[in-house]
């Protein structure tokens, strides 16, 4: 009978990531926090390394931690049956993280989703545009401060869409 998937501890992951110097910023019990500029390199290493074999990206999620954004990568190896968690922090005012969609094709849509709902830009993403909401939707709804954005922008549509063609221009701008 199969055994449960092993969650690699943060220390273990950090040890594996010694091959990418300067990648690990902080090591927690269950995850490691990576330096944003080393993210793609570290991801590529974990993907290619035969001992880690992080070929399967379970998911990418973004979290608004009030003063910074956190992008969480759940990576697992189906061969070794273990899983590990990476985190990257992004600045709250100008959130930008490099995209790992070159490493895992599966990150493509999820990064678009995070961009859409949290407003974290993924540099290097081939097709970064809003996914669920339309172009021109004010704000990013999953942010904690979405319900009271500074500058008096209220969530949702400003006016009925037909009255404001500017708001709908993005939809037809072509891609």
């Amino acid at each position: 009978m199969a055994t449960a998937t092993r969650l690699l501890s943060g220390e273990d992951v950090a040890k594996r990531l010694e091959a990418v110097p300067g990648a690990v910023v902080e090591t927690a019990e269950d995850w490691v926090t990576l330096a944003p500029e080393k993210l793609v390199e570290a991801a590529r290493f974990l993907h290619d390394d035969r001992d880690t074999d992080g070929r399967f990206l379970n998911g990418v999620s973004g979290v608004d931690r009030y003063d910074y954004f956190e992008v969480v990568y759940h990576i697992s190896s189906l061969a070794h049956n273990h899983t590990l968690v990476l985190k990257v922090r992004a600045d709250h005012d100008e959130p930008e993280v490099s995209s790992v969609s070159g490493v895992w094709r599966g990150a493509h849509l999820q990064e678009r989703e995070i961009f859409d709902l949290l407003g974290v830009r993924f540099s290097g993403h081939p097709n970064l545009k809003r996914m669920f909401l339309w172009e021109g939707f004010p704000g990013h709804p999953l942010r904690k401060d979405f319900m009271g954005l500074p500058g008096g922008v209220s969530p949702g549509l400003k006016r009925f869409p037909k009255e404001d063609p500017e708001q709908w221009a993005g939809e037809f701008r072509g891609n």
């Binding site: 199969a2 290619d48 035969r50 074999d53 070929r55 189906l78 061969a79 049956n81």
Partner: peptide
């Protein structure tokens, strides 16, 4: 019977 995912050929 059980999970069986091969590792890639070592480059």
């Amino acid at each position: 019977k059980d999970i069986d995912v091969p590792l890639p050929e070592p480059s």
